[in-house]
Write a protein that binds this DNA or RNA. Structure first.
Length: 151
DNA sequence: GCCAACGTTGGC
DNA sequence: GCCAACGTTGGC
């Protein structure tokens, strides 16, 4: 079981939306490095839900990967902002996962706190100018984040 | 294959 | 709203 961190803007889709829906297809990722991480996810992996582009940004909870290797349906939808005309049903470009709501932390762990606690090498989300929306979190770091969430 | 132009992300 | 970071595109 691995830990990940996945970003979403709460104005678009936040943890409350996931709690309401119980599970969702994590669609709209259009970056190859992020996609490759999505491809390597397995059932039961856990992912920190990170709210980006909000005040303050930070980790707000946890989710569980419930289905790997999901074809992102938005790539074939001409009306979607994530439409990719170069992708075909025979050879889809964008795979993702289905995730299940696990928990909302009692309080957000803000980016500021994460910067104080972790180095950019350990937790990529604190890297300056980091734009990657899906990234691995080392086990030991994940445990510390969970401890922080409880404190 | 280089790299300038461009578009997007995301913190502030 | 600004703008730094940085991935992608396309001309050459």
């Amino acid at each position: 079981m691995k830990y990940w961190l996945m970003k979403s803007e709460p104005d678009v889709y936040g943890i409350d939306d996931l709690k309401r829906d119980r599970e969702t297809i994590w669609d709209g990722v259009r970056n190859y490095q992020a996609r490759n991480f999505l491809r390597s996810m397995e059932v039961g992996d856990r992912a920190f839900f990170y709210h980006s582009n909000t005040t303050p940004p930070g980790i707000v909870g946890l989710m569980t990967v419930s289905q790997p290797e999901v074809i992102d349906p938005t790539q074939f939808d001409a009306k979607s902002k994530y439409y990719d005309p170069k992708s075909t049903e025979a050879a889809p470009r964008w795979q993702t996962v289905k995730v299940e709501y696990a928990e909302t932390f009692p309080a957000i762990i803000s980016l500021e706190t994460l910067r104080q606690q972790f180095s950019p090498d350990d937790l990529w989300v604190v890297r300056n100018g980091n734009r990657l929306s899906v990234m691995p979190v080392p086990d030991a770091i994940a445990q510390k984040i969970i401890e922080l969430a409880k404190s």
